[in-house]
Amino acid sequence: MRELNLVPHTYSNQKKLIDRKKHVALSIALALVVVVASGGYIFGKEALLKIKRNNLQEQVDSNKELVVKNEALVRDINLTKQHIEKAKQLSVLKGKDTDGLIVELSSLFPSGVKISNITFAKSGNLEAEGLSGSLNLTCEAKSKSDVSHLWANLRESDKFSNSHISGLTGTDKVTFNLKINTKGVNNDVKAEDKQ
């Protein structure tokens, strides 16, 4: 009988077993590398996204501050414009000589007409037409001819040509309302007239 040499076969089986273990170990190591790399990629991507989110949040916060500053500036600009407009209105009113206006108006009244009440109304519509405002007068006259004479005088005047008489009542003593849209008298013009 022949003797069998089992050592090479055992060696061969051991070599296969070692090769298999190496393949398994290499596969496990490769799988671990893939898992670690994937985890690292995901962790890195998440960290990068957090950094981007933080940067965007900082930009949003900065923009909010800029919006608040812009709104405050717009409010300040509007307030300044309102102050400028009020200053212009006051300078226009300061330039009007109401005494001269009333003196000139009284020179147009016949002796039979008396004024019982005067009110002055300032209107933006009148200013657009080059007028300073409107005078509303409540008057009493001795006769209707005095009223007609007054209205004729007003119509001939440049400053008081736009006048309206309403509410004419009475026979012995006539009462009426007079509305006059006036151009006003500038102080500068009045000073030049005095020279």
Rank of each mutant, 00 (worst) to 15 (best):
G124W: 00
E127A: 06
T138L: 15
S132Q: 08
E156G: 12
S148G: 06
S111E: 15
A87Q: 07
N54M: 11
L79S: 14
K81G: 05
E85L: 09
Q59C: 08
Q82T: 06
E140Y: 14
S123C: 04
H83C: 07
A72C: 04
L66K: 11
A141F: 02
S62M: 08
G133L: 00
N136I: 10
P110N: 07
V67H: 02
A121R: 06
E58L: 14
E58S: 11
K69Q: 12
A141Q: 00
C139A: 14
H149N: 14
S134I: 12
I118V: 13
S107G: 11
N54S: 15
L135N: 01
S132R: 01
L93V: 04
L108H: 01
W151S: 15
L131R: 03
R53A: 15
N70S: 10
A141D: 02
E156Y: 09
V147P: 02
L56A: 08
K96Q: 15
I102T: 11
I102R: 07
D61K: 12
L150C: 05
S143C: 06
S148F: 10
G100S: 04
F109N: 00
A87P: 00
I118M: 10
K64S: 10
L154G: 05
L73V: 09
L150S: 02
V113K: 07
K52F: 13
L126D: 04
V113W: 04
L66T: 10
G167A: 04
T171Y: 11
S123P: 03
E104W: 03
T98K: 11
L79Y: 10
L93P: 01
S145K: 13
S145C: 06
K86L: 05
K144F: 15
A128K: 08
N63K: 09
L126I: 00
A152R: 12
Q82P: 02
K122S: 13
W151Q: 15
W151C: 10
E58G: 09
L56F: 11
G100K: 06
K69R: 11
I102P: 01
N54C: 12
K122D: 06
E104Q: 13
T98G: 09
E127D: 07
H149C: 14
S134E: 13
N54Y: 10
S148I: 14
R75A: 13
V147E: 07
S116C: 04
I115Q: 07
K52W: 06
A128D: 06
S111Y: 08
S157F: 03
L66R: 13
I115D: 02
L90G: 03
K122I: 13
I84G: 04
S106N: 13
V103S: 13
K88D: 08
T80L: 14
V68E: 12
V113S: 02
A121G: 09
K142F: 08
N162F: 00
S116R: 11
E104K: 09
E85N: 11
V68W: 03
Q89K: 13
A121Y: 07
L66S: 10
N55Y: 10
K88I: 05
E156R: 15
L168T: 06
V60A: 08
P110R: 09
L101W: 01
K64L: 12
N117T: 10
F109P: 02
L137T: 01
K52E: 12
G167Y: 00
T119S: 13
N70P: 03
F120D: 00
G95W: 01
A141W: 03
K52Q: 08
N55R: 15
D97C: 01
D97L: 03
S157D: 05
I115S: 07
